[in-house]
Amino acid sequence: MYPAPISEYFAPSTLEECLDLLDQYGNQAKILAGGQSLIPLLKLRMADAPIIIDINRVIELQEFGEKFLESGNRVLRIGALTRHKTLASHPLVLSKYPIISDAAKYIGDVQIRNRGTIGGSLVHADPAADLPVPILVLDSTLRLVSKDGERTFSADEFFLGLMMTVIEPNEILAHIDIPSPQPGTGAAYYKYSAVFGDFAIISIGARITLQDGICQSSRIYLGGVNPRPQRAVETEEFLNGKTITSEILQKATDVMVEEVIVESDMRASDTFRKVLLKQYGFDVLSKAVQRAKEEQI
């Protein structure tokens, strides 16, 4: 299983060069980041890439750290080339943004985490992948750049459907900004898979902001259930304004199971996915609440 002939390979070291190449080759070119999804697609000849633009040397895509925006808001900026390994183990992520390491730790295996990038994962937009859910839950913004300029999307706007995003052929995802949380915010993620490190049968991500034990706001996304990670709006509405107790979280889980639209596939039936959501939804919500008390998202 080998890729079809590739006529050109570019490995630009600056974003400007990269954008020039994208502008010139657009549709014909494929961006190669970690390659953990692209190379298999090339081998299966399900992706056509007469031209490869290898972005692994582009410095501007490797930013990682907290940053103040012009607006004065603080964000965690994650360059698109940031490897899963960093997200799984960086002290900043582990201490302040553990929902991201919750997800990154169980992506594939060590080798995949050493190579795979957040940009690649988000642009590939596999609904059963690990990173889209926490990125959605954290109300992140994604910055797309091209020769024509920049476009910024909320994560929710970015994902369109099964392996589809708003990204245009001449664009590249530059980075993801995760806003600093409101005080009293916690978040958590859990994946259930058939074997260790496999894609999700279901995944659940939740963010909850508490003040005096009352849920001020919440964000819940479910992955692996249908072609695009699904937001559990009714569950959020149910939680908002309520004093959080174990009983409320249990009821919220029921609302979540009720509202989610699940599909069947060879990994699990729709019914069983709901069973898993019911089992693990409560745990994820509880963990988010616990982290809210420790101010970890």
Binding site: I6, Y9, A11, I39, K85, R115
Partner: peptide
């Protein structure tokens, strides 16, 4: 699996030119 620049990676998921 090989070790590439200090990390274990799968050599079937890389092009030689990389």
């Amino acid at each position: 699996t090989i070790v590439l620049n200090g990390n274990n990676v799968k050599s079937c998921l890389l092009l030689a030119v990389q």
